[in-house]
Design a protein around this nucleic acid. Sequence first.
DNA 1: GTAGGATGCTAAC
DNA 2: TTAGCCTCCTACG
Length: 270
Amino acid sequence: MPEGHTIHRLAEDHLDRFGGGAVRVTSPQGKFSDSAALLDGRVFESVDAHGKHLFLGFGEDTGWVHIHLGLFGKVAFGDAPAPPPTDTVRLRIASGTAYMDLRGPTTCALITEPEKRAIHDRLGPDPLRPADDGEKAWARVSRSRTTVAALLMDQKVIAGVGNVYRAEVLFRHGIDPYRAGKDLVRREWDAIWADLVALMREGVRNNRIDTVRPEHTPEAMNRPPRVDDHGGEVYVYRRAQLPCHLCATEIRTAPLAARNLFWCPTCQRN
DNA sequence: GTAGGATGCTAAC
DNA sequence: TTAGCCTCCTACG
């Protein structure tokens, strides 16, 4: 379930469980064995998250574990004692009280501080990083002929937004996903950025994506709650052919930048 | 049992 | 633009 909120939540959860203590590090599946051996027994010092990239810090001399979950990567936490790992566990970190298993990541690698910096440098501002703001993103969006739906998925433009947040934030602002970035006005972008900050912070808090306003919840509208493994309450994501919560128009879907875009053709005409 | 899809991204053409 | 990567789960025979 990896959009930016998941990664920032994982950073917090790792720090809570392992921060400041020595940990056992293994790679039952084998692909991270050499680095795991290097890290085993060291102190878990710090965490960082930028967009969909997670960094686990083991100190200046040792470096960072760089994790990117990709589409199917998953982290599972549990209490000690850790059970025998299954053979798909790429990385296991364990302390006296807790363990975590990482499966199926696109990236799990031990990197240096300069390598970490290079990753930050190629990522755009992240609505979940307190020091970031939408200014640099606006500079790119406002000059681009690319559709706003594609720009929101471009991690060089804005880091952490994925297919759910892109669809939902465009719906919440009534914006036609196919508009070119350069046709947006400043006020629209500022509103999108501010909304992403709020939505994604709530996503970190709840560990899932909810985007419907209080007046549009299932209880408020007297409709059944969403039944979907994704879990959250949303307006359009994966609701193709279902009626829009606000206007009852059929939600549409189409591939855009190799992913399925969802939108309401009636509500999103701006 | 098999196929296909999923909240992602990159390298190669 | 496409294939490829990595895992898990559902739908369909």
